[in-house]
Design a protein around this nucleic acid. Structure first.
Length: 642
RNA sequence: GGGCCCGUAGCUCAGGUGGAUAGAGCAUCAGCCUUCUAAGCUGAGGGUCGCUGGUUCGAGUCCAGCCGGGCCUACCA
């Protein structure tokens, strides 16, 4: 609602300035520093001052005097040395919100693809993967909240080096057969993804002391690519089991996908062969004849030596396959996957996975008009290569619609490593933080962290609600844990490295997820208490006239609270434009703060004056809806009680 | 060597398109539970926005150069 008034004001000023001065200006609408300056500030006079060569104050006075009436605006004033401040019509805004007027959602139109999570299926997920999935999932929710059609993809590199290394561990280091691995999978006392976590670290460190063992890796990779034999079968067994574990881990956090494109199908359906032909035809890559890259197919321009796309032994690098995948996402490859359903989510939505064999009908995937790849900042070079590939093929529009949704890594503080019992070198101990490393087995596992959070939340819930059943306590604790974790990962902007700290991550106070949840629970409690007392929620539209709204909103306090609550659309819109989920998190926190303030200051159920009581109840309900909606976009559930 | 990111209160971080007196949480200190849940609320202290120049009516924000720190620059992904 607030957002559409902003747009009204901006376009009214723009039209007026064009007519009056003959200048077309994109008019900014800001928030005044002090609330008694009004609700909006237009600094246009400063911009005009330069071109008109007049004092800003004088221009501002002209603007304010001549702008004329604007819908929803009560007063236009000149302030400072050239600001035009806007005061809104309080009754009008209140009445509009009461009628439930909301922003018109953007028309669905074209489809946007968001790829996120994308964890190598060879070990348990860790905290770094959680940042990726939470950012990606929240961005998807933000886009959908604005009416955008979104397809969520989670790419599975099930034939890569990392999977091969775990197979090497099983086969060469542990002398396990396929049957042994199956038995391990069937053993309910063993967490398979955790087992592989350790095994992968062991294999990696074995390579360091036994360079000759790298032969095992390449033999395994060849076996996987050939798609036959015990090692290939073992690789699929491992990857499938780990993917299942990752999906379960992510589902705990409320993260869901539409489709899992797998590398095995990219190989099987020869996606790369098609992309290779295209790249050669357009001379986007060339065969190097000399120097260190002799015998390789190389993409020039991005670094001094160029980027190797096809190795001298004829095998394609990951980036090469990624180019083929990116082409497919835009519907440019001329090939498609086959699909089969993998699982069904609670709401009935089906998660599809690619397959190499023709199957019955499936939805159409890919063919996006814009593609967001949620990948950490360390891979920006590779993302540049992918985009350069599109460009080299002449797909300029698609190259421009390819967005690397990048974010900085999650690292561990040396103190955190000490807590986890991870030994560090002297060099690492002196650093501000240490990179999480799957190869070194260095990291906080996602499920462990969630379990720790749940245990802590359960203590709190049990002490506050001893009467509730154990099952119920556990459910509430689970929701609180998710709220705490998601908010923790979202409160940092994408460019900030998160130096992980247990104490901060495990906090339920201050700027945290549970703080939001608590505010929403309180709002619900008031409305529930009302009914427990035998009263009913009033028919707000019938009982509150526009005049009544205006009367109640004469209170500066109520007015500011209502403004805060009505800015959700504005905040979401801004966050989508900025591509920054942290901005939604920040708004949600401010919203909760405003409500807690309101809650503390005004008795609602016990209010004697009928009009005021109905107004307060309406405010409570409005806050509740906005809190729930914003929390929903952050993927934070609201417990029944706290 | 080249590219990207970070540097703001004791700590962790926010500070759209330059704008009015630089903010929040944590921590510290002082208050508030016979009342709709104290996972909360109120108040206090705490700042050379890394440094130096520049652009202009105006710079935490833009530009240049330094100083710290991190990441990338593989025939790994």
């Amino acid at each position: 609602m607030f957002h559409s008034i902003e747009q009204h004001v901006s376009s009214a000023f723009r039209a007026h300035i064009l007519a009056r001065y003959g200048l077309d200006l994109a008019v900014a609408v800001e928030q005044p520093r002090q609330s008694d300056f009004g609700e909006m500030a237009v600094p246009a006079a400063f911009q005009l001052a330069k071109q008109l060569r007049q004092a800003p104050r004088k221009i501002a006075a002209e603007l304010a005097a001549e702008i004329g009436p604007i819908e929803g605006v009560a007063a236009v004033e000149v302030a400072g040395n050239g600001y035009v401040n806007i005061r809104l019509d309080r009754g009008a805004l209140g009445a509009a919100l009461l009628r439930g007027e909301s922003e018109e959602a953007a028309p669905a139109g074209e489809k946007v693809i968001v790829e996120h999570t994308n964890i190598n299926p060879n070990k348990a997920a860790h905290i770094g993967h959680l940042r990726n999935a939470t950012l990606g999932d929240t961005f998807v929710r933000m886009l959908r909240a604005r009416g955008q059609r979104v397809e969520v993809q989670n790419y599975i590199d099930n034939t890569g080096v990392q999977v091969a290394d775990v197979v090497v561990g099983f086969h060469y280091l542990e002398n396990k057969t396929l049957e042994d691995v199956k038995a391990l999978l069937a053993d309910s006392s063993v967490r398979f993804d955790y087992y592989c976590w350790d095994l992968y670290a062991r294999t990696s460190s074995y390579y360091k002391d036994h360079a000759e063992a790298l032969e095992w890796r390449s033999a395994t990779l060849h076996a996987i690519e050939a798609g036959a034999g015990e090692l290939a079968e073992m690789a699929h067994l491992v990857a499938d089991a780990i993917v299942e574990a990752h999906l379960a881990t992510m589902l705990r956090l409320g993260v869901e996908y539409d489709v899992l494109p797998r590398e095995s199908e990219i190989l099987r359906l020869r996606f790369w062969a098609s992309a290779f032909e295209l790249l050669k035809e357009h001379r986007a890559i060339y065969r190097e004849t000399e120097g260190k890259n002799a015998g390789c197919w190389v993409m020039p321009g991005l670094s001094e030596e160029g980027k190797v796309i096809v190795r001298s032994d004829g095998t394609v690098t990951y980036v090469g396959k990624d180019i083929a995948y990116q082409l497919w996402k835009f519907g440019l490859l001329g090939k498609d996957f086959y699909y089969r359903p993998l699982q069904t989510y609670a709401d009935g939505r089906v998660l599809w996975v690619t397959t190499g064999e023709p199957t019955e009908t499936a939805p159409q995937f890919g063919h996006g008009s814009r593609v967001y790849n949620v990948i950490d900042a360390r891979q920006s070079y590779l993302q540049d290569v992918v985009v350069a590939g599109l460009r080299g093929l002449g797909y300029t529009a698609q190259a421009n619609q390819s967005v690397h949704f990048s974010y900085e890594m999650v690292a561990l503080t040396p103190g955190c490593c000490a807590e986890l019992g991870i030994p560090l070198s002297e060099e690492d101990r002196a650093r501000p933080y240490v990179e999480v490393s799957g190869r070194k087995g260095l990291g906080v596992k996602a499920d462990d962290l969630m379990d720790t959070l749940i245990a802590k939340a359960l203590e709190e819930v049990a002490s506050r609600h001893a009467e509730a059943s154990a099952e119920e306590q556990k459910r509430v604790a689970g929701q609180i844990a998710i709220g705490a974790l998601r908010y923790f990962l979202l409160k940092f902007t994408r460019t900030s490295v998160i130096a992980f700290d247990f104490q901060e991550a495990l906090s339920f106070e201050g700027e945290t997820g549970p703080y939001l949840q608590y505010a929403a629970v309180r709002a619900r409690n008031i409305l529930r208490k009302l009914e427990e007392r035998g009263e009913r929620l009033p028919d707000f539209a019938a009982e509150l006239s526009r005049q009544a709204m205006a009367r109640q909103l004469q209170s500066e306090d109520f007015w500011h609270l209502l403004l805060a609550a009505s800015k959700a659309d504005s905040a979401i819109e801004e966050a989508v434009t900025a591509g920054e989920p942290a901005h939604v998190a920040k708004y949600a926190f401010q919203l909760a703060q405003a409500f807690n303030n309101f809650y503390h200051q005004y008795p609602i159920i016990h209010e004697e004056n009928r009009e005021k009581k109905v107004f307060l109840l309406w405010m409570t309900d409005f806050f509740r809806r906005q809190l729930e909606r914003t929390a929903g976009i952050l993927g934070i559930p609201i417990p029944e009680y706290m």
